[in-house]
Computed example of a mutant assay.
Amino acid sequence: MAVNISNDPYYNDLYYSKPFGYTILETPYFQGFEFEKIDYLGWQQYILENWQLAFYASAVYITSIFGIQRLMRDRKAFELKTPLFIWNMLLGILSIIGFIRVLPGFYTVLSEPNGLYNSICVKKGLDIPSIYWAIAFAVSKFVELGDTLFIVLRKRPLIFLQWYHHLVTLLVVWTTAPFVEPIVRWYGVLNAGVHSLMYPYFALRAIGVKIPSYVANFITTMQFSQMLIGFAVNMASWYFQHNGYDCERHPLSIKIFVFVYGTFIFLFGKLFYDSVIKSGRKQKEKTKSKAN
């Protein structure tokens, strides 16, 4: 890559100080917008010192959603079409922007020699957009708890997968974020990519827009694929460590993600089977019966 160091003190400091032990990407794109130039060390320290906030929020979250669900038992459901549309559309727009901003850095590292290994294990190729959106990703896990609030206020079925994956994701992100591991780039790109499709879909559904069933099936397939890929790259880092390669992964982080992605594969796998495979078979059977 051609060296292109700007006169921007923020970028220069990032380039020469190599924060968290990372080398820095060197093209104008990766110098970032002004709003992306934040106190990254301060944020890391804040999360490190306040990781328990995620557990406090989780306790409030569980108490609130099941408490509200009980209170709503004999009450009329709220419609909330417009607020739900705005909520999902805003989260969708943020996910799309985040995906666009972090994908180039991820692709740059992945496309170089030994790219897969480097993207998982080596502190190489950090950039301003990725730093900013990684922190935004961590904070957004608090915001996304609001998804469940809409479900209980509208008296929609609250399945285990829905509240469990929000709860666990928040706890895991805030527990492992201070490690600043290279593999996080995988988790961020996968999550932002899927949410870029999921939240706009939910926004349109909230206002009654009819969307073909194959769109929902595609999103469900992407969700399940996200869990499979997340589990695979986590196990790849374990493989590298146990076969003599240097791999910047904390043993606790590997164990946590084995558990998390393992349960997600089971839960999203069931959703994928029920929503895509099983329903697809039923639809084919109906089509055949009509033809006969």
Score class of each variant (00 low, 15 high):
Val3Asp: 10
Val3Ile: 09
Ile5Gln: 11
Ile5Ser: 05
Ser6His: 10
Asn12Ser: 12
Asp13Arg: 15
Ser17Gln: 14
Ser17Trp: 09
Gly21Ile: 04
Thr23Trp: 07
Gly32Glu: 00
Phe33Ile: 10
Tyr40Pro: 02
Trp43Pro: 00
Trp51Thr: 07
Phe55Asp: 02
Ala57Leu: 12
Ile65Trp: 04
Phe66Gln: 08
Ile68Gln: 09
Arg73Ala: 13
Ala77Arg: 14
Pro83Cys: 08
Asn88Pro: 01
Met89Gly: 05
Leu91Trp: 08
Gly92Trp: 10
Gly92Arg: 11
Leu94Lys: 11
Phe99Gly: 00
Phe99Pro: 03
Val102Asp: 00
Pro104His: 09
Phe106Met: 01
Thr108Ser: 07
Thr108Val: 06
Ile120Asn: 06
Cys121Arg: 08
Pro129Cys: 08
Pro129Asn: 11
Trp133Phe: 12
Ala138Phe: 06
Val139Phe: 15
Glu144Val: 10
Glu144Thr: 09
Leu145His: 08
Arg156Met: 13
Tyr164Val: 10
His165Leu: 02
Leu167Asn: 10
Thr169Arg: 12
Thr176Phe: 01
Val189Thr: 04
Tyr199Ala: 00
Ala203Thr: 04
Leu204Glu: 05
Pro212Arg: 13
Tyr214Ile: 14
Thr220Phe: 03
Thr221Gly: 15
Met222Arg: 08
Ser225Tyr: 09
Leu228Cys: 15
Leu228Glu: 06
Ala232Asn: 07
Ala236Asp: 00
Gln241Phe: 06
Gly244Trp: 05
Arg249Pro: 01
Ser253Phe: 13
Lys255Gln: 14
Val258Pro: 07
Val260Pro: 07
Phe264Asp: 01
Phe266Glu: 06
Phe268Lys: 10
Gly269Glu: 11
Gly269Val: 12
Leu271Gln: 12
Tyr273Cys: 05
Asp274Val: 03
Asp274Pro: 02
Ser275Trp: 08
Ser279Val: 06
Arg281Lys: 15
Lys282Trp: 10
Gln283Asp: 15
Glu285His: 12
Lys286His: 14
Lys288Arg: 15
Lys290Ser: 14
Asn292Glu: 14
